[in-house]
Design a protein around this nucleic acid. Sequence first.
DNA 1: TTGAAAGCGCTAACAA
DNA 2: TTGTTAGCGCTTTCAA
Lengths: 345, 345
Amino acid sequence: MAVTIKDVAKKAGVAPSTVSRVIADNPRISLDTKKRVRKAMKELGYHPNINARNLAVRSSQAIGVIMPSSADKALQNPFFPEVLRGIGSFAHEAEYSLYVSTGGNDQDVYEEVQRMVNGNRVDGIILLYSRIADPVQQFLTEKNFPFVIVGKPSEQESEITYVDNNNFKASKDLTNHLIDIGHQHIAFIGGSTELTVTVDRLNGYKSAIEEAGLPLPNEYTVHAEFLKSGGRDAVEQLFALDEPPTGLVVADDLMSLGVINTLEEIGLSCPEDVSLTSFNNLYLSEITTPPLTTVDIQIYQLGVQSARCLIEKAKNKDEPAKRIIVPYDIKFRQSTKSMTPETLR
Amino acid sequence: MAVTIKDVAKKAGVAPSTVSRVIADNPRISLDTKKRVRKAMKELGYHPNINARNLAVRSSQAIGVIMPSSADKALQNPFFPEVLRGIGSFAHEAEYSLYVSTGGNDQDVYEEVQRMVNGNRVDGIILLYSRIADPVQQFLTEKNFPFVIVGKPSEQESEITYVDNNNFKASKDLTNHLIDIGHQHIAFIGGSTELTVTVDRLNGYKSAIEEAGLPLPNEYTVHAEFLKSGGRDAVEQLFALDEPPTGLVVADDLMSLGVINTLEEIGLSCPEDVSLTSFNNLYLSEITTPPLTTVDIQIYQLGVQSARCLIEKAKNKDEPAKRIIVPYDIKFRQSTKSMTPETLR
DNA sequence: TTGAAAGCGCTAACAA
DNA sequence: TTGTTAGCGCTTTCAA
């Protein structure tokens, strides 16, 4: 059996409660006894039992992190380890631990959340995705359990704390950049329209196009779950149009990789034939050919901020709902190119 | 306060211990009472308090997963979410939860492990990396705490349970493939030599080269932490040699991406000028230009198996140390090309 | 400034 | 087959 608070108490010649107070660094314990107790702890190699502590204080000093169900192949996106790193960093500072759920399907995820919440395993939850009519979100709201979303909630926006970028504006900026450098035919390639992030980016794109009075045919909006066979077809169709785009706004760097590849296959090259702009500034966007012009959404910061908000909320249930918008920064690289006069139609 | 076992007991007209037994599905409780108790649980919305349970049984039904310190930029590698998915899948089946550590630096990681172990937060630990003289590994060994490594331990190989691929052989196969299709000058680009995985892959490469009696100058072995400025220089130097390689064995798909990019920059193309083989078969290796010939190491399976081993070990401390070798499978794609007669030097 | 004692919610002998 | 009871290790009133 491990060494307990009692053993320490005995060794230091005090009561268990005193030891407990020393652990909590209670100011009403004399420095003298504190020292004595700490010495005893050291000598015995004492470490508090978290479970006992949690039971007594009805909390767990742990936060749950929910990834999207891995039916979404999107899980292979380096976005996730990166937010996790941000979350972990802040959590570590605050001496919180991370509980992670990586459910196989939506049902698994839901069950995991239930286990976390009902079993008192965590003090709060961070959702790493946001989609419309999410049962998990509903459950958490009903239970009035502390949670924050990385992304934007699709409903009850003002009652839910969330950390997001201004995806609408970022997307608009990207599109305007393409317009500025002479592109008139710009298409959008995004992921599932169930995800609010896709919707925001799509709308930003549309807004810029409309304001510029450029064509916005339905065919210019493509939703490819994730690039591969399906996405490939979509891109091929896009460039088989009578008026194929010369500029592209793609919702994710990993997707962009697939798009560039598909372009090559059909004999088009980036940026010579088509300029591509993208999102996330994953590490890999610097090492692709060509390196991508992409929005740095500061994934790590998204993680840090969400952890901060959650912990605040977990410590104080009355903490009001907040919205944190992490600034973005467009990285201009070689996947975009001005339309030269002769290529202008 | 949440509803407890006592409330259920009262409602069902039984003793708390009976309720406890029903939860554990103890066979010596009559089906009748079981039904009654379960009904009461439903009606009251009862959920067991994990902390209380853990305290009583001195276990936690949770496993700790340790990522490398994120000083290693390698954390952005999709390898991690993917193993995590595998681990999570098995853990979920077995009703275990996942505790994840994503330390900022080595010290953080070490502290996290201590917290997990000493605080009884987890029943066992999975290390997602293996490097020489790792203090974490030492700590775990000394404590005789259940753990398994994804990768190969650098010492005490026979006393530690680990899940790995035959990286030596895979690397040898890759190299031999390049030799078979006519390459005579083959170089190796790998990550940190502190990592056992790098060492194995390097040795496999060397073995093939030596057996074939091909040149193996020191300059043909490059260790680039991760491709970027540093890695770029390394690659440039490699191809500035009097006898530059025409074949490449690269230790990771993400690195390969960087290598291909650097090649383009210096006016070489893959696979026309240099054939490239790689490791991991990340999703992205299918959507690069060109798609990569790479070893599918079955990341997901690595995760599943490690979780299985760990849980066995956690349940039974006397479980002997095991070694699980997950089979690999080389995916031949377009990054390799036979040397044509005229290019043969 | 410290100690005694009563829980936190659950499990597991031991009895019955 | 079920109930009684004593913990698991820690926190936290209430007293001193």
